[in-house]
Computed example of a mutant assay.
Amino acid sequence: AADWAATASILTVHNLPFMGSGGGTALGEYGLQAAREPLLPEWARSLPLPLGMVHADWITTVSPAYAAEIQTAAYGCGLEAFLASRSARVRGILNGIDPAVWDPASDASLASDYDLHSLEKRRPNKAALQAALGLPVEPRIPLLAMVARLDVQKGVDLALEALTRLADSPWQFVLLGSGDPAIEDRARAFAELRNRHVRFVPAFDPGLARQIYAGADVVLAPSRYEPCGLVQLIAMRYGAVPLVRATGGLKDTVTPYAVGGKGTGFLFGPAEAPALADAIRGALGVYSDQRRWIGLQRRGMAQDFTWVRSARAYAELYLEAAAVRRTGWGGSP
Rank of each mutant, 00 (worst) to 15 (best):
D3I: 14
A5H: 15
A6R: 13
S9D: 04
I10S: 07
V13P: 01
H14K: 02
M19G: 04
A26I: 13
G28N: 15
E29M: 15
Y30W: 14
A35Q: 07
R36E: 14
R36C: 13
E42V: 14
R45W: 01
L49Q: 06
P50Y: 08
V54D: 04
D57T: 04
W58H: 01
P64Y: 02
A65P: 06
A68I: 02
G78D: 07
G78H: 04
L79F: 06
E80F: 08
E80T: 00
L83V: 05
S85T: 01
R89S: 15
V90K: 09
R91K: 14
G96I: 00
G96Q: 02
I97P: 06
A100H: 13
A105W: 00
S106K: 15
D113R: 15
D115Y: 11
K121T: 13
P124I: 09
A127T: 06
A128N: 01
L129N: 03
Q130L: 08
L135H: 00
L144W: 07
A148V: 12
A148Y: 02
D151M: 13
Q153T: 10
A162L: 09
A167S: 11
A167Y: 11
P170K: 11
L175E: 12
L176Q: 07
G177E: 09
I183C: 05
A191F: 00
F200K: 01
F204P: 08
D205L: 09
I212G: 08
A216M: 04
D217P: 05
D217G: 08
V218I: 15
P222C: 11
P222M: 00
S223A: 01
R224K: 13
Y225A: 09
V231W: 03
Q232N: 12
M236G: 10
G239T: 04
V241L: 03
V244Q: 04
R245G: 11
T247V: 14
P256T: 12
P256N: 10
V259S: 14
K262N: 10
F266N: 05
F268M: 08
E272N: 03
A273S: 05
P274Y: 00
L276M: 01
G285V: 09
Y287A: 05
D289T: 09
D289W: 05
L296D: 02
L296F: 00
Q297W: 07
G300P: 09
A302K: 02
D304P: 04
A311V: 03
A311M: 09
A315M: 13
L319C: 12
T327R: 15
T327E: 14
G328N: 00
G328H: 08
G328L: 05
G328E: 06
G331V: 00
